[in-house]
Design a protein around this nucleic acid. Structure first.
Lengths: 154, 154
DNA sequence: GAAAGTGGGTTCCAAAAGAGAACCTGTCAA
DNA sequence: TTGACAGGTTCTCTTTTGGAACCCACTTTC
């Protein structure tokens, strides 16, 4: 299967990955959530090849995950900002980061703490059921074909 | 920067992506959570090139995300199962799927519903603060250098 | 007013990774 | 003895990266 065909899949994970599942794309988005906006910033923070960065920013903009906003005229300069759709990827970032905190941090501890400004404490996000409020674990969740299922998976 | 250097980064997202941030790896893991275990199953469900699949399964096994378990002797046949470390990636899968549900599903609706067996209802996971129990949103969370921070980021 | 700097790219080449198909290895069943 | 099955490996060809150089519209400095 070619990567470009992924968005045709009857699976939300596959469809999401068709947008952000690339080697560099999630790293670019990480920098967005950490405040990066300009081409130069992304390049120097990530050490990514410039044409690859240009391509990823273009694709993310086309996918409406980022948007270009002019921050000066003459010479016109534009920066990239997360859209609402892009900000909706925040839970993905947090869950990725937390897996890294748990399984990839060395003896020296986690590199970055997340502070919940609302309550003022260092926080970890827990995935809770929208219905009963209990924490969701893989073993307690099964899947069922939804309205958009073309074929049912085992 | 080369992809292999990512696990040296002082960032849990980068470190996580060094293990699962590959084009195909997350698709392989999706199938694991949907019940796939055998080489043949992964191949036919994903349409992935066989040598790429072999390579990803090997790397995931080396990273202790999957483990090989013999399910028959003579001829010896082994299947791949998620380890505890692998199952810990479940929140990542759910958040990816939910983003796809929200932003990539067409008019026909979401392809797959997740049922929380504990309460019996179709569920969506919400990321809640471990401390105050409120839902975590990007705008309410800031970052701070943790004990494992080598250099502080802006 | 020429030279250098800035931000955001594009172009080039060599190297690495991917797609697709064919082939290999035990083992059993027909 | 021929085939089938599961799980790979090997081959060739195409696509994508990594890294460096170049470009362009302006501005600032000499």
């Amino acid at each position: 299967m070619r990567w470009e065909d992924l968005d045709q899949e009857t699976c939300s994970v596959a469809r999401t990955l068709s947008v952000v599942g690339d080697r560099w794309t999630l790293m670019v988005l990480r920098e967005c959530f950490l405040g990066a906006r300009r081409f130069e910033e992304f390049e120097s923070r990530l050490g990514i090849a410039r044409h690859v960065l240009a391509d990823r920013l273009k694709k993310l903009t086309e996918a409406d995950v980022l948007t270009k906003v002019a921050y000066q005229e003459r010479p016109r300069r534009e920066e990239y900002r997360l859209t609402e759709k892009g900000r909706d990827l925040y839970p993905v970032m947090v869950t990725l980061a937390q897996w890294g905190d748990k399984h990839m941090a060395g003896a020296e501890g986690v590199p970055l703490l997340r502070i919940h400004n609302t309550c003022g404490h260092a926080t970890t996000g827990h995935l809770m059921c929208s219905d009963c409020g209990e924490e969701l674990h893989a073993k307690d969740v099964s899947v069922k074909a939804g309205p958009g299922a073309v074929r049912v998976r085992a």
